[in-house]
Design a binder for these strands. Structure first.
Length: 911
RNA sequence: GCGGAGGUUGCCGAGUCAGGUCAAAGGCGGCAGACUCAAGAUCUGCCUCUGUAGGGAUUCGCCGGUUCGAAUCCGGCCCUCCGCACCA
């Protein structure tokens, strides 16, 4: 499996790979992570449940590893920690996968055969694949496998509480939730546009669209304006209806098939393709006959509102497959139209309508400025939209902001039946099986109306009172609260819970997963029972219906809920901010009492692979299973912990894997040897090491409280390894030093490398599991700070000696250190207080000059008495030190800045 | 455009909230030395420039300001990345 750390060293004793599976079994057998209410303070941590359409990748692994490291840390600090995981099966993608497998689609079959092969014996693969024609089988297969993967990662999860979003007891809760929201007046119906596949007869999502994940498709609202001719009208489309006052002509593509369509009893012309699409938005618009481009080109047309008469010109660049396939031309404000005029030899006189920053905005100028037609066009569009004003003389909209003018003209034209909306995709899109994607309009779409001001106010209150890591996301979230409007909450297909108000709809998959963490608190108690609304009201809202005696399981569910709820920390990825997390927060504030509102959110950064963004289409997704198989869970977790803080980008790459893997092997070997060591440490270097360790441990704790996992583990791993290097230079033996700190070190390390630490814990003869060990309250001793600052002082002397040696080229026989005496010290203090009444006047200028270097805190005598030997060992030469004598010494030491003399020796000829 | 984050010494990446102890952690990489027949691994030192005594000069996107003192505070500018929806 793995040969990359086996080959790394030849003489090093190879530490055998920890049998992680064995330890996981033992945790599970002993119910180490099953959490039940008790007298301790609780800590409830969650991660959004994984979607069960396939195996997990490194990104999931990271988020869950972060959550687990925090969960384990909190246990260490004495909290009763609940970390549950369920599975999300709602939504359309799983069904789509089954469809494709049923249809025998090659790509999907290969992909899923591949996925299954990672878990199964060769001859079982096809058998399992065949069952995937049932969506439920896909979901349950991957739910099981994901659970296995998580277990293999060493996650400290209470699996008793796991459930799936398609389980009946949970669906009952979703129904309860929606009836409750409905009774609060938050559920509405209305008009809604969706991306739609006419071939499949279904709305399509990002996952259904070819390249949908990398090249997003959005919906643009064209306005198709009717230009009245003698026999019929033309529907000419634009995103900029406010420019009707600047129209000079119409563009028509001669090579295109045009048709007549009936609109409100009027005969209107549009491209044949357009007629096909508009049916999805206006089913009443029926094709009534063919129409030739020639016919269109021969007519004269009237611009609505202005009444001006214009002509249509031929232009083969007009795309018949965009909106109505006829375009109105505004050469004053469209660089494209301006160019077309030149190309086709029409002398179009631009009419200017818009000021930007008090200056007339002209397509001509934009073209000169940007050079490229397309760039100039889109720059002009943005500029005019965001900072443009209509010129004062224009009727109806004179002086208005362009964005407001656009709304006004659009609404007016539509009201007067002189235009209709033509929704179009932002780019040409196909589904993954090649059917076209168009825009359809649903008239009776169900919504959750998030606009209600009191609801938003409550959510703002929640956001302000909770913890965000990193904190800047709080502001981000407040903006999202302002921005959220209505959310389509049901769809016509996919797995999930039927909408209780109208079971022909299925509740949309993000909307069914907003308050589900509450269900973790009771799922193991209620089992397969389907609770009534009444019982949910009692458990979650403490709302007792008159005279009802609830069964025991309801009573104990209520107790569990009130002990555990409020989610203390939710770890999730950044893209969830404006969808899942806002619904999560809003639904909690709508349903629960304040004390049960969420208390913390940590936003995990993106995971990239070898410096590149991970995407399905690039095929650079790394499977979590592969990683754990190859490197083991502990190494993966260490990588996650040490390579970046939770909220920054994590790059998963081979080079860093190797570096960390090497460090990890060294660390394991060191600890193994230390665990076997029987020798007691004695000597100053060991007490220095112990003092430094206590300080590292204190810093570790304070970093972990902030979830700065990276800093915490640099402090508790790398810093200690560096300390050991110092220790060795001072003549100490690392194993002996380490053996004295294992009792506290192993628990701290166990959050990231639980398997190895659990094994060592046992080897150390400890009872119980390090995984639920409660770390002693320990304190950094006063002495520790003193020792560490002394060490810093001594190290400064060492580097000063080196520097003098380097600069002078002298290689001395010995070193003399003269430290500041009590009376000079008192004088220095006086001088620093601006009291210049001191005996030695030359001290004044010295002190003022090197103010920054003076350290009044350090006890130099203490340091030299204990650590002078260390200087000798490090420099490899004898040292003498004494206190300054005013009569005999030429140079004067300052506090924290001793005089160093190199004694004897020769000048290095090389210099 | 709106909103958010960021630009640090060869590279990655801390430090910026709480200004001095910051020529600036750590890692990678490079150079030199120790060990070794050799290579690798490991260890030690060095890696802005400069200096025959621990010093000096110039650096933290650019320009200006506040301050005895700015990578850190304030103002302006340039550049990069992310989100802007009904998709899990």
């Amino acid at each position: 499996m793995d040969n990359n750390h086996c080959s790394s060293s030849t003489h090093n004793i190879k530490v055998k790979m920890t049998n992680e599976k064995k330890l996981q079994d033992s945790w599970s057998k002993n119910r180490v992570f099953q959490a039940n209410p008790d007298e301790r303070e609780k800590f409830f941590i969650t991660v959004p449940w994984p979607y069960t359409s396939g195996p997990l990748h490194v990104g999931h692994g990271r988020t869950f590893a972060i959550a687990d490291i925090i969960a384990r840390y909190k246990r260490l600090r004495g909290y009763n920690v609940l970390f549950p995981i369920g599975f999300h099966e709602s939504g359309t993608p799983i069904g789509a996968i089954s469809d494709k497998i049923r249809k025998g689609e090659r790509k999907t079959l290969d992909l899923y055969r591949n996925y299954i092969s990672a878990y199964e014996e060769k001859n079982n693969v096809n058998k399992i694949l065949e069952t995937f024609v049932e969506p439920d089988k896909v979901a349950s297969y991957f739910a099981d496998k994901i659970k296995e993967d998580f277990t293999r990662m060493g996650l400290s999860v209470d699996w008793r509480r796991s459930f799936r979003s398609t389980d009946l007891p949970y669906k009952r809760m979703v129904e309860w939730q929606f009836r409750l929201l409905d009774s609060q007046g938050k559920i509405k119906r209305g008009r809604h546009t969706v991306l739609f596949s006419p071939d499949d007869g279904n709305p399509v999502g990002e996952d259904d669209i070819d390249d949908g994940d990398t090249n997003k498709v959005s919906i643009e609202d064209f306005v198709s304006v009717l230009f009245k001719g003698e026999k019929f009208s033309l529907a000419a489309s634009s995103l900029r209806p406010e420019t009707v006052f600047g129209i000079t002509n119409l563009w028509v593509n001669e090579a295109t098939e045009y048709v007549f369509v009936d609109f409100e009893g009027k005969k209107i012309a549009m491209s044949e393709k357009a007629a096909g699409k508009i049916k999805l938005q206006h089913p009443e618009m029926i094709v009534t006959g063919k129409c030739s481009a020639k016919e269109i080109l021969s007519g004269e047309y009237t611009i609505p509102i202005t009444g001006k008469k214009i002509h249509a010109y031929a232009n083969e660049h007009i795309d018949p497959d965009q909106a109505s396939g006829i375009v109105f031309s505004v050469p004053g404000h469209s660089v494209r139209d301006l160019q077309f005029g030149k190309i086709f030899g029409h002398d179009l006189v631009p009419i200017y309508l818009i000021n930007v920053d008090g200056k007339l905005s002209k397509a001509d100028d934009a073209l000169k400025k940007h050079g490229d037609v397309e760039v100039a066009n889109s720059e002009l569009y943005k500029e005019e939209f965001y900072s443009g004003y209509m010129l004062e003389h224009i009727p109806l909209i004179g002086g208005m902001k362009v964005s407001d003018a656009r709304e006004k003209i659009k609404n007016m034209l539509i009201e007067e039946k002189n235009a209709f909306l033509f929704h179009e995709t932002s780019r040409k899109a196909k589904t993954r099986n090649g059917s076209p994607v168009h825009v359809a309009v649903f008239d009776n779409q169900w919504f959750i109306d998030y606009l209600e001001p009191e609801w938003k106010a409550a959510t703002r209150e929640a956001v302000n009172s909770m913890r965000f890591t990193p904190d800047f996301y709080r502001k981000n979230m407040l903006d999202i609260v302002d921005w959220i409007s209505v959310r389509a909450c049901a769809r016509k297909r996919g797995l999930g819970t039927p909408l209780p108000m109208d079971p022909s709809w299925v509740i949309e998959s993000l909307s069914d997963s907003t308050i589900y963490p509450a269900f973790y608190t009771i799922s193991h108690i209620i089992g397969n029972r389907e609770l009534s609304d009444d019982e949910f009201n009692y458990i979650f809202l403490q709302d007792r219906a008159n005279g009802i005696v609830y069964p025991d399981y309801v009573e104990s569910a209520k107790k569990e809920f009130s002990y555990w709820y409020g989610v203390d920390e939710r770890i999730t990825a950044q893209p969830h901010l404006s969808n899942h997390l806002i619904f999560y927060l809003m639904n909690h504030t709508a349903i629960f009492r304040k004390k049960y509102w969420p208390k913390g959110i940590t936003i995990a950064g993106t995971v990239i692979s070898n410096g590149a963004k991970i995407s399905k289409s690039k095929g650079n997704a790394v499977s979590l299973l592969d990683i754990v198989n190859t490197h083991g869970a502990d190494l993966f977790r260490l990588y996650v912990a040490v390579n970046s803080d939770p909220w920054s980008t994590l790059d998963w790459n081979q080079k860093d894997v190797e570096i960390i893997s090497k460090k990890y092997e060294e660390l394991k070997e060191l600890i193994m040897n230390a665990a076997n060591n029987a020798e007691k440490p004695s000597g100053i270097h060991y007490s220095i090491f112990a003092s430094r360790f206590r300080i590292h441990l204190r810093n570790f704790n304070s970093e972990m409280e902030r979830y700065s996992i990276r800093n915490a583990y640099i402090e508790i791993i790398y810093e200690i390894i560096n300390d050991l290097a110092d220790l060795r230079n001072m003549g100490g033996v690392p194993e002996i030093a380490v053996s004295s700190i294992l009792e506290n070190w192993i628990p701290a390390l166990s959050c990231v490398m639980p398997h190895f630490c659990e094994e060592i814990w046992k080897k150390m003869g400890k009872n119980g599991f390090v995984s639920n060990y409660e770390m002693n309250k320990f304190e950094v001793m006063q002495e520790d700070e003193k020792i560490v600052s002394s060490l810093k002082y001594v190290k400064n002397i060492i580097s000063d000696v080196r520097e003098i040696r380097k600069v002078t080229g002298i290689i001395p026989n010995s070193i003399e250190v003269i430290i500041c005496g009590e009376s000079e010290r008192a004088d220095v203090e006086k001088i620093l207080r601006k009291d210049f009444n001191v005996g030695d006047k030359k001290l004044i200028s010295m002190v003022m000059k090197s103010r920054g270097k003076i350290d009044l805190e350090i006890d130099e005598k203490y340091a030299m008495e204990r650590m002078a030997k260390l200087i000798e060992t490090s420099l490899g030469m004898p040292l003498e030190w004494r206190v300054y004598d005013r009569i005999g010494d030429r140079k004067t030491p300052l506090p924290g800045k001793p005089v160093i003399n190199l004694i004897g020796g020769v000048k290095n000829a090389d210099r």
